[in-house]
């Protein structure tokens, strides 16, 4: 079997893109102290909304824009529950995922069996959205570590009481961060439907949102770490598809488990490292998953 390293790398980039977008978005939300388990629901919403817009207008880029808006919009449901009604973040995120999967299954029926408009390729045979994802990595790194707004966001995530005492609006910061996460997840989902599979099928994100959540843990809450995790995942996916195509004597169903098993293995390795290192829990934000209620 001939394997051209460049074409394998291009496939890897493409396979990693949905996860990269979703995980970068979730990274920002988690750095603000919000654990949003609704990534899968926001991705599938973006996948459908983006596909519908791209199909309707014939312009794939408009599709991605609509997907970002849809992802951010549905994330507001989660924000309302957790920031306004102070509901448990784990349960609210699950609710968002279940609701998103249901909603898209309901409204997606007319789009089944329809083809997506063609994506123009960008520089170096790599499509524009893949480029955008790669550019987002240093941008988000810069925002979190070098900008004033990023510092406030991290402060809110590390210790919301202290941030509140300093006069920062904890709620507004968190709602904004979650909405950004929703927009990124929406774009990631739309990449699956518009640029990768080229059609809409029910539940097509197939756990990508959950893998993105695991990759944020793997990254130790840093943007370059997210990129490494997304590429690792992309590599496993491409390898698995290559083995399938090469006709290896292993049932297809077993090969297709690879991304999920790889995620578990990576999660275990990284959790073990964080567990036995000096700072328990790795670099996880101090207020992650806790709700904020100002008594004064």
């Amino acid at each position: 079997m001939m394997i051209d390293p460049l074409s394998v790398f291009l496939l890897l980039l493409s396979a990693a893109t949905p996860i990269l977008f979703a995980a970068l978005g979730e990274l920002v939300a988690e750095r603000a102290g919000v654990l949003n388990l609704g990534v899968e629901g926001m991705m599938i919403t973006g996948a459908l909304a983006g596909f519908a817009a791209a199909h309707g207008t014939g312009n794939p880029f408009l599709g991605f824009l609509v997907a970002a808006v849809a992802g951010a919009a549905i994330s507001l449901l989660f924000s309302a529950l957790t920031q306004l009604f102070l509901a448990n973040q784990v349960a609210s995120g699950l609710a968002l995922t279940l609701f998103g999967l249901g909603l898209t299954a309901m409204f997606g029926k007319p789009f089944e069996g329809v083809k997506a408009p063609a994506m123009p390729t960008g520089p170096l045979r790599i499509n524009w959205i893949v480029w955008l994802g790669l550019i987002m990595v240093p941008l988000i790194w810069w925002f979190l570590n070098r900008s004033r707004a990023g510092l406030i966001l991290r402060g809110v995530g590390e210790n919301h009481d202290a941030a509140h005492a300093l006069g920062y609006d904890v709620r507004l910061t968190r709602v904004t961060a979650v909405a950004f996460g929703g927009a990124m997840a929406g774009v990631g989902g739309a990449y699956v439907s518009i640029a990768s599979v080229l059609q809409w099928t029910e539940g097509m994100t197939a756990g990508a949102g959950w893998i993105a959540l695991a990759i944020v843990v793997f990254s130790n809450w840093t943007a370059p770490g997210v990129l490494a995790g997304a590429w690792l995942f992309g590599g496993v996916t491409v390898l698995q598809l290559r083995l399938q195509a090469a006709g290896v004597q292993v049932p297809v169903q077993l090969l297709s488990m690879a991304p999920y098993l790889a995620t578990i293995i990576v999660l275990v390795l990284i959790s073990a490292r964080q567990k036995f290192s000096r700072r328990a829990g790795g670099a996880a934000p101090g207020s992650l998953g806790q709700n904020f209620h100002a008594l004064r």
Partner: peptide, 8 residues
């Protein structure tokens, strides 16, 4: 290993 039971 302290792996999240939610994700696993």
């Amino acid at each position: 290993f302290g792996a999240s039971e939610i994700l696993v």
